[in-house]
Each structure stands twice: as structure tokens, then as C-alpha cells.
């Protein structure tokens, strides 16, 4: 599984990246957390508000930092 965090490096983007990494390690998932900072690539996902979360090339969250539980649910759904 590939998890992408889209954002230009603002505080919330870093928060989301840390959160994603934590959930991955807590759940023991085999997943890579990748940070995408290039504006062209961010826009390619149709996102206009950062931070955004993309799981296996599918946009899940945009414009906010989701809660821990929400990320757990999203990752578990995608893992199956």
C-alpha cells in the first residue's frame, strides 16, 4: 500500500504525515508513507486545499487533518 500526504510543507501537512506514519506502525501495515510537495503533482489529484491524504492513488481526505480513528478506519478499509 502507498500512502501519500499532499502538502507544501505547512504545519498541518507535517501533522498529517506524522499521523499517517504512526497509524501505519501501530497497525503493523506494510505501507510506504510518501510526501508530495510539488504543486503540479498535488493539483493532479484535483486537490485545492491541503493537507490531503491519498491511499493507493485514491483521494480520501482534503483540507483538514483527520482524527487518528478516521485514519485507522481508512487504512483498514484499504488494506483489505
Amino acid at each position: 500500500m502507498v500512502i501519500k500526504v499532499l502538502g507544501s510543507g505547512c504545519a498541518n501537512c507535517q501533522k498529517l504525515e506524522a499521523l499517517a506514519a504512526k497509524v501505519v506502525s501501530d497497525l503493523g501495515l506494510d505501507a510506504d508513507v510518501v510526501k508530495v510537495t510539488d504543486i503540479g503533482q498535488i493539483m493532479a489529484y484535483g486537490v485545492m486545499s491541503t493537507p490531503a491524504l491519498v491511499i493507493d492513488e485514491e483521494l480520501k481526505v482534503a483540507g483538514r487533518v483527520p482524527t487518528y480513528d478516521e485514519v485507522v478506519a481508512l487504512l483498514q478499509r484499504s488494506a483489505h
Partner: peptide, 9 residues
């Protein structure tokens, strides 16, 4: 921090 993607969008 979202001004740039918003503007481009």
C-alpha cells in the same frame, strides 16, 4: 498555506 493550490485550481 492553501492559497497557492486554491488560486491555481
Amino acid at each position: 498555506c492553501s492559497a497557492v493550490p486554491l488560486f491555481i485550481g
